[in-house]
Design a protein around this nucleic acid. Structure first.
Lengths: 237, 237
DNA sequence: AGCGGTGAAATTGCATGCAATCTTGCACGC
DNA sequence: GCGTGCAAGATTGCATGCAATTTCACCGCT
């Protein structure tokens, strides 16, 4: 246990072990390296991270509390799966929460925050032209995060970020649908304009529509690649 | 903390140990038997529940993930404290989430659900007349729960229930403020009427106003009993 | 007296071991 | 042939022990 404190993969040993495990596994799930349904065995994870089972267990329970893994008592943990209906529900929650954030942000953002949001938005325009999906997605996250923060309510921010993490595991590659990049930017544009005008209701409507469109795009993409749940309802293959 | 083991309701060991610990400690916090700021030492809890530290640790981490306890690394856990500003934020989140639920419920509730909501509401009227605060609070919880369920979105229901648990630890005894019972019923009445009419926006407005009033009443009560945080700046504005 | 260093006690973090439960493969009986 | 019971392996649940960190009282110094 002596030299186990220096994981050359992660620069320094920062934070507690459990925190790092949670972060690492959560990233793997959200980034798609651990697809839904994969079993997460404690001994295997412990071996991979060179730690004992105890911190692994605690990390798995935390991830289960965050909705990223399912923890069946005495039956092990798996990466959270989701039905089409449930994913629809999660997107609806996201849409409503982002709508609330947008409305409050339109009312409360400081001039500096409005400028920063506009700057992010302008910066992403160049990525639309170059078609850099990955960079656009990164900026997209920052755009939405700025919106959440602009509501000036840390509890609301935490809530919507948690919802975003849950949904992120299932909505990767939304921009793979053709033409989504430019459309996404235009939808953002409406949100930005409404916020700069201080029209909270318009901003809420715009972002709710945006998320609903993202939902539709994600459903389309997911349906075209692999069925997430054994839902033989629409078994048109 | 002597005869606190009045758990005659669940004599058999159902569920996993950690689940029972979480439930028990969460109840103690929400019901006020464990006030904010109290230290939760692992060995003490382990001794009280006659278990080892391992399940206690996992339970504490889960409670921390739920926002009911604060878990400082290497420094132990305490029952979650909250500043006045943060409590205000939590109430705002509650108000917005309940507003979303009310709007969707007005659109989606089945006739049977509408009848059930109306029945709950009518039943609580008698408790207002008799002034039975405790019974009213129980029915109040069921009323709000029916509203959440009426939105027909399990993810939304989970989200708002989690927020409600977080805020519950700090809003006990809202009905101690004089006359709150009758006013609360009247506010509910507006919500019920709007839902029965199918007017989602009106229902959302009504329940948001209701929660904001509850917030004010709670703040009043809390300020009159004990200051939760050393926040001398009354950011009333 | 006030202040900073120091070491022991207290407490948490992690590792390991055993018991309980679930899974799986196979033999047995219908 | 196929379903059922059962036992061995695999996996999780919990207990215990040791290491690391924090806390705090005590002591010496300015």
């Amino acid at each position: 246990m002596r030299a186990a404190k220096r994981q050359t993969t992660t620069p320094p040993a920062r934070g507690t072990l459990v925190e790092r495990l949670v972060q690492s596994v959560a990233d793997d799930i959200v980034e798609g390296r651990l697809p839904p349904g994969v079993r997460l065995e404690e001994v295997e994870l412990a071996a991979r991270f060179q730690v004992s089972r105890t911190p692994v267990r605690e990390a798995l329970r935390l991830l289960a509390a965050n909705g990223l893994v399912e923890n069946r008592p005495n039956r092990g943990a798996i990466v959270a799966t989701i039905s089409e209906d449930r994913l629809y529900e999660l997107f609806e929650v996201m849409a409503e929460l982002e709508g609330v954030c947008a409305r409050l942000a339109a009312q409360r953002m400081t001039p500096a925050e409005r400028q920063a949001l506009e700057a992010l938005h302008a910066e992403s325009a160049a990525l639309v032209r170059s078609g850099d999906r990955e960079a656009y997605e990164a900026l997209n996250s920052r755009f939405h995060a700025a919106l959440y923060r602009g509501a000036h309510n840390a509890a609301l921010e935490d809530t919507v970020l948690a919802a975003r993490r849950r949904v992120a595991a299932f909505r990767r590659a939304q921009f793979h649908v053709l033409g989504r990049l430019a459309k996404s930017w235009e939808e953002h544009d409406q949100v930005v304009r409404a916020i700069l005008c201080g029209d909270g209701d318009a901003a809420a409507r715009a972002i709710r529509a945006h998320v609903q469109i993202v939902r539709a795009a994600s459903a389309e993409y997911i349906a075209s690649t692999h069925p997430l749940a054994p839902h033989p309802l629409s078994a048109n293959g």
